[in-house]
Design a protein around this nucleic acid. Structure first.
Lengths: 181, 181
DNA sequence: TCCCCACTTGATACATTATAACGTTTCTTC
DNA sequence: GAAGAAACGTTATAATGTATCAAGTGGGGA
C-alpha cells in the first residue's frame, strides 16, 4: 500500500487526478491490471466484462448501472439490467470496481492488485471521486468497534465535500464548474 | 458527547442494546427528546412526523421507507411515498433519524440533542444497527482528506459485521438467529 | 470426437426505492 | 379574516436492483 499515491511513472497523483491528465493512461493501466490479475486467478475477464470495466473507467466520476446499460445498447449490444449487474458483480468480486453506497454508483479501483482499505472522497462540485488509503481509519474504527464487541467484516467510508480544485474556485466565485452534473 | 454510551438511568447501553431491554423506554426517550428539541427550534413535529418517528423507532433495525408507508396505511392513513419521504426528510434535518446508505433504510438517532459524528455498526446476523461516536474516525479521516486538499462536508461511516451477541453465538453453532431477516 | 458439465449470457418480468409536479389543506401572522 | 408560508394529498413516473428460466459457450474427460 506504500505506493497507493503514485501512478504511472511521471504521472504522480494525489487523490484527485489533474484536470487535464492523460486519462487514457488511467484506462490502459486499469485494463492491464485487470487482465493480468484475472489471468493469475483463473477468472474469466470476458469481452462483456472487459467492456463494462472500460465504461466504468470512462471518467473519475461514479457511473450508474443504467448509464452503463445505455452505453452497451448504443454499442449495439443486446443488454438488459441483469447483464450489467452481473458484470459489475464479477468486477467487484475481483476488486476491480467499487460501489459508492451513498450514490448507488460505481467507480474503477486504481489499486486492484494491492490489499487496501478504501476511503472515498466525493466532490459535490465536480462529481469526481478519489480513492485514498483508509488504513488509519480502519484502525480507529476497529478500536471503537472492538470496545463494543463488534467483529468487523466490511467498512464503508465515504466523505462528501470539495476537492482541492473546486474548493479553490469557491473561494473566489460561486460560479458553476466545468463538469458539474 | 461524553454521555453517548449512557442511556436512561439504570439502563446503561454499550452500543447494541440488550436482547430483552425495555424498548418502550427507547421509544419514549426518543419521542421526548424530539418533542423538546423541535419546540426549542420552532420546528413543527406534526402528528404525521411524530408517527413516522415512532415507526422508525419500532426496533433497532433499520426501517425501509416503504415499510413505514405500509404501516401508515394499516393505521388507516391515506399515505403515498412522498408522504413518508417528506416526513423522513424533516426528521433527518432535525437530526432525529439517520439514513443507512448501504441499506437504503433509516434508524432513529439516540443522540439528537448532542452534536456528534455517527459511526454505524450493522450486524449482518440480527440486522440491528448501533450508533457509536465516530469522533476519532473523523479525526483520522480529516487528516487523510486534508493531505489531499479535500474539504469535508459530510461523513458516512458504516461497518458491517457481527455484534457481540451474534458473534458469540457463531462461535458455538451456525444456526440462524432469533430475529435474522 | 463427442458429450457432459459448469459457467456465462439472453430475455422477460417484476420488485424496490425515490422524486416530480401540482393541487388542497392547515397554520401563522398581521 | 385575508395573505402568505408550510405541510400534506394525489397522481404519475423515474431510478435502481432481482428472480427466473432459457439458450449459448467453452473446456476436460470418456
Amino acid at each position: 500500500m506504500a505506493k497507493m499515491a503514485t501512478q504511472t511513472e511521471g504521472q504522480t497523483r494525489s487523490a484527485f487526478p489533474h484536470r487535464h491528465h492523460n486519462h487514457q493512461r488511467c484506462v490502459d493501466q486499469a485494463l492491464g491490471k485487470a487482465l493480468s490479475l484475472c489471468e493469475e486467478r483463473g477468472a474469466r475477464l470476458t469481452s462483456l466484462r472487459r467492456r463494462v470495466l472500460e465504461l466504468v473507467w470512462r471518467s473519475h466520476e461514479p457511473v450508474g448501472a443504467y448509464d452503463i446499460l445505455e452505453q452497451l445498447q448504443r454499442d449495439g449490444h443486446r443488454a438488459a439490467p441483469p447483464t450489467v449487474y452481473r458484470a459489475l458483480e464479477f468486477l467487484r468480486d475481483q476488486g476491480l470496481v467499487h460501489r459508492i453506497e451513498s450514490l448507488n454508483a460505481f467507480v474503477g479501483c486504481p489499486y486492484p492488485d494491492e490489499s487496501h482499505v478504501s476511503q472515498f472522497l466525493i466532490c459535490t462540485a465536480c462529481s469526481e471521486v478519489a480513492e485514498i488509503d483508509g488504513t488509519k481509519i480502519r484502525a480507529a474504527a476497529s478500536r471503537n468497534a472492538a470496545a463494543a464487541g463488534f467483529a468487523i467484516d466490511r467498512l464503508t467510508i465515504e466523505l462528501r465535500g470539495l476537492c482541492a480544485r473546486c474548493n479553490a474556485h469557491d473561494q473566489g466565485s460561486s460560479e458553476p464548474h466545468d463538469h458539474a452534473r
